[in-house]
Write a protein that binds this DNA or RNA. Structure first.
Lengths: 237, 237
DNA sequence: GTAGTTTTGTTGTATAGACAAGTTGTTGGT
DNA sequence: ACCAACAACTTGTCTATACAACAAAACTAC
């Protein structure tokens, strides 16, 4: 492996295991250069690339620091709904309806890379904004990658928070649909009359594979997705 | 301005005015270095950064080339629906229902940075997949930035294709909602019974400002949005 | 002619050094 | 107590050079 890549690996590992928390200083270019017996330009390149990847931020004259881990993706940020509600200045709460182990349905098995009827963890949660149901979250979690899932207290943190913490997510696959809610969904979202709902199907991956598959359903009248997205990179100078 | 930035500007301008088309060669590091009287490392940096921005691609031992302008955005690619349908191997067609100049409604005016009741271009198009209506596109276009919009033949190319060609888009803002279609929409999408629809509101920008605001409505049973998206940059090495 | 070999040109990695530019803390002087 | 000057440290830009890795074209031997 190239030297600059080794230094990147080192820095990443220190961040991942928590030695260097958010906003803490990372060694300066000169220090790294000496530690790894490379030239300053090589150490610099490692810091530079990590900065471009959003993992560090740097200020001239001051130093290099670990960036906040919060994802700042352009569109459809994967932030948990709790943060989203808090950022609107509203009260967030959740009701855990179910948290069990199930024999894995075929669809889920193929999505998570499990065997049919192998055990899979399942949770069902209603997220509330100012005590009004906003989103119904049905989530299947791979027991191989997250063995302790069913022993968590999801009144303390959302499944998404827990999963992000346990297994750093690398990727997510999304599907957005407009659907007609079934009776079960209506009941838990307190919809007197059925109305079009937005359903976000989200499959998340860590380095080891597919972690979880979540169906997030919210009434169209109360929830929408938005954001910015760079399109034509040409003009992006 | 820094030297490497000047070189970037130069390369970008050559690409933008069409001197260097897609997949054509750009000067090598050494040539640029000599032309601009800088060291190879400086010229290299310009090429390097443009590569990271997706504007160039390079292969060791071969050279540097202008990347395809096609957007390859992660989620919600801004590709026109015609391409999308073609890529599914289906037949695409469109019906132009309206193409006029209107006094600008207030909502549109604020979105496009126009004055209330100033003229705005409006087009209404149904996109069909295998002769079945898939999406209804209502689009408002700024006459300031795209004065020739109403004189186009949108049976030849979609508005999105035309706009991308005329004014290179820099950004897009999206809103995704699940809505209940009105009678008008139902009629043009040939929905016998109303069903939940996915509505994508898309506002596009060029360097000069907001170009157009489009409402894209499609039946939930026939249309959905999907894609991949990198999330947690930490593990993205 | 065809298969190997060499040459040439390109990008990729790395070094050692220089100066510029920005921030922070220290040191004096008033 | 305040301010100014300075020193120390950091990141940012740039140079000149060297060698490695790779690809394509040119050349050579058969």
């Amino acid at each position: 492996m190239a030297k600059f890549a080794q230094i990147k690996e080192y820095i990443l590992s220190q961040i991942e295991i928590g030695v260097w928390p958010e906003h803490s200083r990372v060694p300066s270019e000169n220090v790294l250069a000496e530690q790894f017996s490379v030239s300053r330009m090589t150490a610099r390149r490692a810091l530079q690339e990590l900065t471009e990847q959003g993992i560090l931020y740097r200020t001239q004259g001051v130093g290099s620091f670990v960036a906040a881990l919060k994802s700042q993706s352009s569109l459809l940020e994967i932030r948990n709904i709790a943060d989203e509600i808090h950022s609107r200045g509203h009260a967030y709460s959740a009701r855990l309806l179910q948290l069990t182990e199930l024999p894995c349905p075929a669809v889920i098995a193929s999505a998570l890379g499990l065997k049919r009827n192998e055990a899979v963890y399942f949770s069902l949660i209603v997220h509330l904004e100012n005590n009004q149901p906003l989103q119904l979250e049905a989530r299947y979690v791979s027991p191989r990658l997250v063995p302790d899932y069913v022993r968590q207290d999801f009144n303390q943190q959302t499944p998404h928070q827990y999963l992000s913490h346990i297994a750093p997510l690398t990727e997510a696959e999304h599907l957005v649909e407009a659907i007609w809610p079934d009776d079960f969904t209506c009941r838990h979202l307190l919809l007197k009359k059925p109305e079009p709902c937005l359903r976000l199907t989200r499959r998340t991956f860590s380095r080891e594979g597919a972690v979880s598959l979540a169906y997030l359903t919210a009434p169209g009248s109360r929830y929408r997705l938005g954001g910015y997205l760079n399109v034509n990179l040409l003009a992006n100078r």
